[in-house]
Design a protein around this nucleic acid. Structure first.
Lengths: 195, 195
DNA sequence: GTCCGCATGTAAGTAGTTACATGATTCA
DNA sequence: TGAATCATGTAACTACTTACATGCGGAC
C-alpha cells in the first residue's frame, strides 16, 4: 500500500489533519502495520487534494499555524476500496534488523546481544500494553475489522515476545561461547572498543 | 539494514554470485527477514567491490554468461560486524497490506476477504514447511544464531497462521453482514464488477 | 531553561523497484 | 510450445527519508 492509500484509510475513519494522520500511524489503530512521516504525508495529501480524493478546510487557530482538516470524498472512498479490492497480497514485507544481528550472534559481543534483545523485549511489551488498552475500549466480542486486526497484532507480538524471553539466554550463550575464540569476534570487539 | 550490508551477510556464509545471493533472500536462511531483487543486488556488489569489501573472480561457463563469484574480504567482515554492532534496533518495520485490507473487512465483498485470507494461509503454510525442512538439516538442540532465528520464524508464523485460521470465518462474517447494507460496500462491489 | 507537543511544509538526497535487454537449457 | 532456471546488468522511475525552516505553549 502506498502512502496515499494509507492516508485515505485513516481519513475513511473520519476527517483529520496531517499531524493527526501521523499520530494514527504512530499510536492509532494502524500503528502495527502502517507507517509514514511528515515528509511523506504532506505531499501525499497535496496530491490527493489535487485529484479530488479529499477536500481541505482550513481551521484558524490562535497562536498556532492554521490547521488543515482533510475529509475524504466519494471519489476517495472509491479509490480506497478499489485499491483494497484490487490487491491480493500473497505476502507481506518484513525486514528485520534484529534477526539479522541475532543471526550472527556468535560473532557479536555478549553485551551487545543482551542489549538488543532487552531493547526489543521492552518494545514488544509496550506494543502489547498499548494494544490491550485499545482492547478495553473496543467491542467484545470483536465486531469490526479493526478489532480483529488488533487481536492479530496481540497474538503475533505475544508469540514474538515469548520466544525472545525464552531464548534470551541461549542467544547470549552463543555470543559468550564464541566471542573469544573466533577471528570475526575479535574484529567486532576492536570495532566496538573504538567507538 | 541496507542492501549492501545484507549482501555482505550472505557472503559471510561463503562465496556466492549475485544470482545466488538473490536465492538466499528468496529461499535461503535469510528468506524470512531480508529481501532484495537483482536491481538492488548487482549495483550493491559493484559498490562493495569498488570499496574493497569483496573480491570478484569470473568463472567461465559454456553457453552461459560468465559467473561472477564474490568473496568477502577482511574489510568486508569488519564492515559487516561493525554495522551489526553499531545498531540497536528498537523496532522492525512491518507494513502489511493484508491487515490493511482486513481492517476494512466490513466494506469488502465476502469473496474477496475469503480469497485474501486463503492465499495468505497457503503462504504461511509454505513458509512453515520450508522452515521445518531446514530444521531437519540443522543442529538439535539449536547451536547457531541461524538455528535460533529460524525457530523464531517458526514461532511467529505459526501464531499468525493459527490466528488467521481461527478467525477466517469471523472476518468473512463481517464482510457478509455489512456488504449489502453500507454505502461503501456498494461502491466496492460496482468497482469489482467493472474489472 | 530545556524538552516535548502542536502544526505545516520544502528540498535534497538515498534507496529501491520495475521494466527492459539478452540468451541458452531443461522440463512438462 | 511455453515456462522455468540459470545468468548479468542498465535505465528510468517511484517513493521514501532526513534535514531544514519556523514558532508558540506547557510541563518538569
Amino acid at each position: 500500500m502506498d502512502i496515499r492509500t494509507t492516508c485515505l484509510g485513516v481519513l475513511a475513519l473520519g476527517p483529520a489533519s496531517g499531524y493527526e494522520i501521523r499520530k494514527a500511524f504512530e499510536e492509532g489503530p494502524f500503528s502495527h502495520f502502517a507507517e509514514g512521516g511528515f515528509g511523506s504525508i504532506y505531499p501525499a495529501l497535496g496530491k490527493l487534494s489535487d485529484g479530488g480524493f479529499v477536500t481541505c478546510t482550513t481551521e484558524q487557530q490562535a497562536k498556532r499555524p492554521d490547521k488543515k482538516i482533510y475529509q475524504i470524498t466519494d471519489a476517495g472512498l472509491d479509490a480506497l476500496f478499489g485499491a483494497l479490492g484490487g490487491t491480493t497480497p500473497g505476502e507481506d514485507k518484513y525486514k528485520s534488523n534484529l534477526l539479522f544481528i541475532l543471526f550472527f550472534a556468535q560473532h557479536m559481543p555478549p553485551d551487545h546481544i543482551a542489549s538488543v534483545i532487552d531493547t526489543r523485549l521492552d518494545w514488544y511489551r509496550g506494543k502489547l500494553d498499548h494494544l490491550m488498552e485499545d482492547a478495553g475500549a473496543a467491542h467484545e466480542p470483536p465486531a469490526t475489522g479493526a478489532d480483529l486486526v488488533r487481536e492479530f497484532g496481540v497474538a503475533v507480538y505475544q508469540a514474538a515476545y515469548d520466544f525472545m524471553r525464552d531464548n534470551r539466554e541461549a542467544f547470549i550463550a552463543l555470543a559468550r561461547d564464541n566471542a573469544r575464540t573466533t577471528e570475526s569476534a575479535r574484529r567486532i570487539e576492536t570495532h566496538v572498543a573504538a567507538e
